[in-house]
Design a protein around this nucleic acid. Structure first.
Length: 228
DNA sequence: ATCCTGTGGG
DNA sequence: CCCACCGGAT
């Protein structure tokens, strides 16, 4: 039995996994935010951080009327850090938010302007901004800008390595390419797929797996490999 | 490989 | 108490 899939088999596998997750969890309609700018802020605040903690920080920012690029540009970095304290890493994240809005104004003037035109080029630019790594960048492109850029995170690696479709140590570009090269570049598909991966990993595919009731057991090599 | 950091769950 | 959390920079 061959242990590698060809392109068509990989495409079919990825789509079958998507359909299975979708039928289990339903459409999740990400990102949970009121505006594209709020998505950008959330994407930075959620770096290596539980989303519940991010929500607290977002509530603080909303209460202070700070969920706009203009307001964030004006606020003192130290005060911003205090407001986003619940999201953890507040000093670095405050600097990153200030850096992002500063760059945004200099380079484009507004989010709308930023999302006009070629998003491939924008991806390069965004990635070069301090504190915007590959995942944050793709989250902004997909969930704030509606661009078909697949988002990869630690959950994606954990799930798909356990499914035998990649190695956990594969770098970001390689993992992203698995999806970008085998799936149609459709925003609703990319949007739901990443959200469903997150949901699946919160519910079942944890570090310490909760395989009870997992919708993917029939695809999973993790149990079969006998390595919990 | 280590630092950045609060919060909730087991 | 300990760990994990929708990472990124050095």
């Amino acid at each position: 039995m061959k242990d590698t899939l060809d392109k068509e088999q990989t495409r079919a596998a990825l789509l079958e996994l998507f359909e299975t997750l979708l039928s289990r969890y339903g459409a999740l309609n990400w990102w949970p935010a009121d505006t594209p700018f709020e998505v950008c802020v959330g994407a930075i605040l959620t770096q290596n951080t539980n989303w519940l903690n991010v929500e607290k920080a977002i509530v603080n920012l909303k209460r202070e009327g700070l969920l706009s690029a203009e307001a964030l540009r004006e606020i003192d970095e130290g005060r911003l850090a205090e407001l986003i304290r619940p999201s953890g890493f507040f000093n670095v994240k405050s600097a990153r938010l200030k850096g992002f809005v500063g760059w945004l104004f200099e380079r484009y003037g507004s989010l709308d302007a930023m999302f006009q035109g070629d998003w491939i080029g924008l991806r390069e630019e965004l990635s070069a901004v301090r504190g915007i790594g590959p995942e944050t960048c793709d989250s902004i492109l997909l969930y704030a800008g509606g661009k078909p850029s697949f988002v990869v995170d630690a959950y994606t690696r954990r799930l798909f390595s356990r499914l035998g479709l990649m190695r956990e140590e594969d770098d970001y570009h390689r993992v992203r390419a698995l999806f970008m090269d085998h799936l149609p570049a459709e925003v609703p598909l990319f949007n739901e797929y990443h959200a469903l991966i997150v949901e699946q990993c919160k519910r079942h595919c944890r570090k310490k797996p909760l395989c009870d009731g997992c919708p993917l057991t029939r695809f999973c090599t993790f149990l079969a490999a006998g390595r919990p």
